[in-house]
Design a protein around this nucleic acid. Structure first.
Lengths: 217, 217
DNA sequence: AGTAGAGTTCTTGTATACAATTCCACAGAT
DNA sequence: ATCTGTGGAATTGTATACAAGAACTCTACT
C-alpha cells in the first residue's frame, strides 16, 4: 500500500502542527502551502480533510481551515479518557492474554528496566510504547486497539514531557511491575486499577507543569 | 455554519451505506456518483475522505474506495467498547451531574416510560437517546462526550433491531430506573455497572440475532 | 473623526483538463 | 490448455481554470 502525495503532506502538516510550528487559531493558507510543498491546491485540500477528522484543525466553510492547538482543559479531558481506556484494555487483557504475549510483555518490561537503569529517558519512552501496545493487542478487540492507539498517539507529545519529573521513571517502572503481576495473575480489576493510576498520574503531572508554566508567563 | 455540497453528499452516502444499499467490498464509482448527484468528481472525492475517516469505506490507493460493512465480529467489538464507554460516563456523571441535569434525566426517563406503556418502540428509541445524551454531557468531559456519541451513532442502526425482542423494552426501562437511582445516590460504581450491563445486553441480543439469521441463510 | 456602503481583491469551492497507473483483453509461446 | 506479455481502455491522482462568497479598502456622508 503505497502512500499518496496527499498522505505525506498530511503527515508533514500534522508534524508541524504538533511541534507548535503554527499558533492556535492560525489560518492555513492553501496557496502558500501548495507552493511550499511544490504541488497544486488539490493535494493540500485533501490533506486538510485528514487533519480535520483528526481534530488538528477546524474548518469554517468559505473561510478556510484553522489550526486547533489543544487547551489545558481539553488535554485534561483526553488524559482522563486515556486512563479509562488503558484500564479497559488491562481488564480485558487480563482474561484474554496468551502466554506468548505475556512473555513478550515481560521482555518489553525488562527492556524498560534497562533503560531506566541507564537513565535513558528516550529509550524508556520507546520501550514503554511497545509495552503498552502489547497490552492493547491482548484485548483481542481490534476496534478498542484502534481507538486507544489513536488517542495514545495524539497525547504522545504531552506524555513525553512529564517523564522528566524527578523520580518519575522509577515510579513508572514499579507501576509496570504491578501491571505485569496483575496480568500474570489474571486479575482484571487489579490490572485496570493500576493502569488507570499509571496514566492518570501522567495527566496530573502534565497539568501541574502546565499551570506552573502558565503562571510564569 | 452552512453546509458545503460535499457535506450533504457525505451524509447521503453514509445513509446509503448504512442502509445496506451497497454490498460489502463494493467499489464506489466516482464518475457514476458524480452524475447521480449532479456534481463533478471533486465534491465526491471530498466526501470520500469523510467516509474514510468514519471507517465506512476503505481506500486502496490508485484502486478506489470500497465500502466496508461491519462484520458480526467487529460489531461485537464495538458493542464491547460502547458498554465500557457508557460505564465510564456513568461513573464520572455520578460525581459531576448537576441538580438541573438530574431533573432533565428524570423527565427523559418518564417520557421513556410513557413510550413503553404505549408500546411505541420508535418513540422509546428517541427518548432513550436523549436520556443517554444527558448522562454523556453530565461527565463534563467534551472529548468523552464526542467519542461516545460518535460510536453511539455508528451503532444506532444495529441497536434499533434488538429493541424488538420480546420484553426488551420493559427490561430496558427497569435498567433506566436503576441508572437514575445510582446517579441520584452519587454511586459511580453502581451507575457504571448498570450502564455496562444495559449496553452489553444489547450487544448480546444483537449477536444472537445475527447468528440466527446467518444460520438461516 | 467615525461609520456605512460600494467596489475591488483575495480566498475558497467546484468543474474540467491532463497525467499516471491499473485493469482487462487478446495474442503468442511453452 | 494455461500462462505471460503487450497494448488499449478505464480509473484514479493532480493541475489548472472558473465561479461564488468573504474580506478589505477607499470614499462619501453624518
Amino acid at each position: 500500500m503505497e502512500l499518496k502525495r496527499a498522505d505525506r503532506i498530511a503527515e508533514a502538516l500534522e508534524q508541524m502542527i504538533v511541534t507548535g510550528e503554527f499558533a492556535d487559531g492560525e489560518r492555513l493558507d492553501e496557496i502558500r502551502l501548495a507552493e511550499m510543498f511544490g504541488v497544486s491546491r488539490t493535494p493540500i485540500r485533501e490533506a486538510f480533510q485528514r487533519l480535520i477528522s483528526a481534530g488538528l484543525v477546524e474548518s469554517r466553510p468559505r473561510r478556510g481551515v484553522f489550526v486547533h492547538q489543544l487547551s489545558p482543559g481539553e488535554l485534561l479531558n483526553m488524559f482522563e479518557v486515556m486512563a479509562e481506556l488503558e484500564a479497559i484494555c488491562g481488564r480485558l487483557a487480563a482474561s484474554r492474554i496468551r502466554d506468548s504475549q505475556l512473555e513478550q510483555l515481560r521482555e518489553a518490561n525488562e527492556k524498560c528496566r534497562l533503560s531506566v537503569e541507564a537513565g535513558d529517558a528516550d529509550a524508556y519512552y520507546r520501550d514503554n510504547e511497545t509495552f503498552h501496545d502489547i497490552i492493547y493487542n491482548a484485548t483481542e478487540n481490534a476496534y478498542l486497539v484502534n481507538t486507544t492507539s489513536k488517542l495514545h498517539k495524539r497525547l504522545r507529545p504531552f506524555r513525553r514531557v512529564q517523564l522528566r519529573f524527578r523520580g518519575r521513571l522509577e515510579q513508572s517502572m514499579s507501576e509496570h511491575d504491578a501491571i505485569v503481576a496483575a496480568l500474570e495473575a489474571g486479575d482484571g480489576e487489579k490490572a485496570a486499577k493500576v493502569l488507570h493510576e499509571h496514566v492518570a498520574v501522567q495527566g496530573e503531572k502534565f497539568h501541574r507543569l502546565m499551570s506552573v508554566s502558565n503562571a510564569a508567563e
